[in-house]
Nucleic acid binder design. Sequence first.
DNA 1: TTGTAGGCGTTATCAG
DNA 2: CTGATAACGCCTACAA
Lengths: 343, 343
Amino acid sequence: MSENGTTTALANGRAGRAPTMEDVAREAGVSRALVSIVFRGKPGASEATRKRVHEAAQRIGYELNVAARMLRETETNVVGLMMTLKNPFHTDIAEKLIAAAKERSMEIIIGAVGQDSAQDSAVTMMRGFRVAGAILLGTDVQASTVAQLSSDRPCVVVGEHDFGQGIDIVRSDDRLGIRIALDYLLGKGHTEIAYLSSPHGQAMAERREAYLEWMAEHSMEADVVETEDTEAGGVAGAGRLLGRKNLPTATLACNDRCAIGMASALTDAGVRIPEDISVVGFDDIEQARYGIKLTTIHQDTDLLAETAMKSLMTRLRDPDSDATSIIFPPTLVERATVGPPAR
Amino acid sequence: MSENGTTTALANGRAGRAPTMEDVAREAGVSRALVSIVFRGKPGASEATRKRVHEAAQRIGYELNVAARMLRETETNVVGLMMTLKNPFHTDIAEKLIAAAKERSMEIIIGAVGQDSAQDSAVTMMRGFRVAGAILLGTDVQASTVAQLSSDRPCVVVGEHDFGQGIDIVRSDDRLGIRIALDYLLGKGHTEIAYLSSPHGQAMAERREAYLEWMAEHSMEADVVETEDTEAGGVAGAGRLLGRKNLPTATLACNDRCAIGMASALTDAGVRIPEDISVVGFDDIEQARYGIKLTTIHQDTDLLAETAMKSLMTRLRDPDSDATSIIFPPTLVERATVGPPAR
DNA sequence: TTGTAGGCGTTATCAG
DNA sequence: CTGATAACGCCTACAA
């Protein structure tokens, strides 16, 4: 193929291969080492050369090979983010997390876990990439998942509970949130309050516990409908309720998605909200603001995201620092799904 | 620290470092090469050794270093996925794409782009990872983004239009979708139909064009409300409508999110749906099924995702094959937001 | 089936 | 600021 007899190890062009720092160095007329320095933004190059290098890179279409960098680097600035794409509460936080990472010039790789908690493949990916740290967002984070990841790097769990020593946790006070919601309903005069519960995760378990506890404290009869924390789960829960002789006067759902599904199914059945039944959700996802205008327990996603990133950075900087559990109080946001009891 | 004077280059354990294939080989009592063969699932190792290697890896907590693999490998099985986390239509497709990738044992890395179309950083990430191919999901994919990525690898764009030669496209027929919706409204007797439009992306532009074209064909007066393709955009659009003397009898929104926001704001203002005004959306996101039960134009996300992955695989296998444009017909799904005209 | 040699593109560490 | 050199952990090819 090649017509020139003398072929140096690094012939120019190297057809078909992506350009390397070597190519940039040649194009800019500087050394490889300098190119590396420039791309890392480290001291040791003048403004003029920096500019020259960047222009040369631009000209030949060079892009840093992150695999090579990760392989060689002792300290990575890549953090993993495990999450479910379908959960709007989490995508909301994720967007803010990504912005927070960018501000600190950290790279973030997303390990998406499906409906079926296939968390293992996300863990494999993150461990494979040797991420410096990880943020685990969400519904039903398994203890085994955390264990696999946290043995090698700091992890912060957002929205879940109790993973033993060494794990940072950032979350809302689920118990308090439930109590606020129930106090509010009681204030409106409700005493027959059903709770739509999800079996997934510790946060959901705590919400359920808090409901039972509060009901017991107030000598009310607990009424737990076991279902799922999705719209479909809400619909199923509503079906269960509608099969009874009497509806409760109010319902509290484990989260907004569930509340929205339930409200939808109730409305379909001719039950008016809030005239016939009151509905309260949890999370305050964006959709809660539209349509039925769900009264719900608000979690501050900005705060959660920023705090999670801050916690992770702290642990990254000082791995021996103590793990912290930061818990924020949620608040009630009144919208249009709660009224006085029908009976 | 170390008590033994003689320290070989590869002391066992290598405290603090992640184990490598070398460590696995030692633990299993085989050669490095064999470990590599086992992890790639290539022929050349007996069942017994395979088992032994895997067990050894498990025991010492080994995980393949993907950076090293990517660096060395000539052919990567990593594909990039660029998308917006906040768009439910896209997260739906993304989940299916991820499942489709897993089936083919492909790795998928997500380049999340924020609300502000910071597509460049996603491109940088994907180029940095030297992904073999890329799938660009969605709203407002910039031509320059596609150009940067497609110069080095096959790209398939989902849901957007016209990026010139060499780009595979998988999408629904937006024009047809709009026409179906309008025909349906006309069939219900509507002649005053407003359209809520978004300025983002070519798909949105085509929907708008199709509306104008259809209205002209039917000698009706076009009534375009310029807004955004989000819930907030829908609210804003509704505000514009409500400021008029007369409402149109029906509205068609550029997508479901916009329709939902608009419907919510109209309801708040005391306008009944569908008694006072009919509303039709586009996309058929999951939320369209709950609450207002939006009548909308359905896009088959399973089909879109599967086809996109299939197209990409074809191009990966045979880079010289022609780029294809695959366009699926959307369908109307009747729910509860359309009735006969109020006037 | 096993072992060995070489190199992927980068960072890190030196000497100049 | 330059240039040389040694890793990083893995894959590829080839020899045993």
